[in-house]
Simulated assay, not measured.
Amino acid sequence: MSDQSAVRRFCAATAVSLTGDAFTVIALPFAILAGGGTAGDIGFVLAARATTAVVFLLFGGVIGDRFPRKNILIMAALGRGLVMAVMAVLCLPGMYSTAGFVALQALHGIASSVTLPATTGLVRDLAGPSGVLRANSRITMIRNVTTTGAPVAAGAMLAVLIPFWGLAIDAVSYGVAALLYATLPVPARRNGGTGILTDLKDGWRAFISFPWLWRGVAMAAIFQLGVLGPVAVLGPVVAQDELGGASIWGFMTAANGLGAVIGSWVVSKVQLRDPLRWFYLSLLPSAAAPIALGLTWPLWAQLIAQAAAGWTLAFGGVLWETVIQTAVPPDRLSRVSAYDWLGSSALRPLSLATVGPLVAVMGPAGLLIGVSTALVTLAVFCSMSRRATSYQVAEITART
C-alpha cells in the first residue's frame, strides 16, 4: 500500500540533502585551494570518496536487506553530517589538512555506499508497487532541479563568503534530512541474515536469475563507457575550441539539466505496457549529444542535443528503477540494487581514463560519432530482444 504522505517527507529529505551536497560540490575544491592544497590534492580528496563508495557498495546492499532501511538512512545522514561539520572546521584558518580531508571523504563514501541500496528498497516500501513510478519521478525531478539550480546559489554565496559556509550548510542539511527520515513509518523488522558472504551470494543469485536485469546493467555499463565518459571529457574541450569557452559549456550543462527535469515529469504522466523496451528506446536521443559535439553543430543545436541527453537519463532512469523495485523480491531488493549500481558505474573510471588514448587514435569527431553509432545499434537490438524485455513484464504483472 502506498503512503503518499511518507513519500512526500522522503522527497523533502532528499531535496534538503541534495541541496547541501550541491553547496559542497562548489565549496570543496575552493576550500582545498584556500588551505594551500593543489589541483592534485583536489583529485585525491574526490577519489577517496568515490573509491570507498564503490568498494563498500555490496556491503551496503547486505545492510539494506538486513536492517530497517529507515534507520540506515538516519544513521548515514547523521554520519555524513558529522563528517561535513568536521570538514567545515578544517576550513578555518590554520586548520586545513589534506590528509584529514581525504580520510573524512573516505568515511563519507562509506556512508554513501549504504545509502543508495537502502534508498531503492525504502522507496518501494513506502510507495508500494503501484506508486513507485510516481515516487521515482518525483525523486529524479528533485535531483535534477537541485543539481541544476543549487550550484548557482552556492557560487553566488562563495563569491562573498569563505568555503566554510558551504560545507557547514551541507552538514546542517544532513541533520535536517535525518529528522525528516525519523518521521517515516517504522518498517517491519527484517531478517538478521546468515552471514555477509552468504547474503552476497544470495543477492548475486537473485541478480543473475533475471535475464533482463543483468542485460540492462551491461547496457548501462556500456553507456557509461562509450557515451558519458567521452562527452564529459570532450564536451568542455569542444566548447573551448569551437563554441566560445567555458560559459557556453555552462549553458549546455544547464540544457542537459532542463531536459532531465522534463524527462522526469513526462515519465510520471505516461503508462507504458512494456517499460523495458521503452527504457532501451529512450536511450536513442542521447546519441544526439556526442554527434553534435563530434560534428561541432551550432550552439542552438548543441543545446537541443544536450536537453535530449538529459531527457534520456531521467526518463530511462525512472523506468529502470521502477522495474527493479517492482520485479525484485523486497527481501533481496537492496542487494540486487547494489549489484545494479556497481555494474552500471564500474566502467566509468575506465571510460574517463581511456578517452585521451582513443582520441589520439580516432580523433575527437571519430570517437564521438563512433560511440553514438554503437549506442544506437545496441539500444535498437536490445529493444527487440525478448529476453531483454518480455520477462520483466511477466514479473511486474505477477506482482501488481
Rank of each mutant, 00 (worst) to 15 (best):
T52F: 05
T120Q: 15
G366L: 04
R66L: 07
L126E: 04
A353L: 15
T312D: 02
G36C: 05
A246H: 02
Y339P: 05
R387L: 05
L73Y: 09
P29A: 06
R273V: 12
V145K: 09
L281P: 07
L342V: 14
S383D: 02
G43E: 03
V45K: 04
G149N: 09
F30I: 13
A260G: 15
S337I: 08
T354P: 02
T296L: 00
D340W: 12
Y391T: 11
G121R: 10
W278R: 13
M1S: 13
G316Y: 08
G263S: 11
V89Q: 10
R386V: 08
T98F: 03
T24K: 04
Q224T: 08
A77W: 08
L161D: 04
L28N: 01
R215I: 13
L283E: 10
R277W: 11
A307W: 03
R332H: 10
G356Q: 14
I139Y: 07
S247A: 13
L352C: 02
T140I: 08
G61H: 02
N136S: 09
R134S: 12
V145A: 14
I72N: 00
V16Q: 03
P330Q: 11
L58H: 01
A374Q: 00
R49M: 05
A135I: 11
V25F: 14
G294N: 06
M362Q: 01
T326P: 00
A127C: 10
A182H: 09
F223L: 06
I262M: 14
V114D: 00
R9H: 10
T115F: 13
E395M: 02
G121Q: 12
R205S: 10
S247L: 06
P290L: 07
L28F: 06
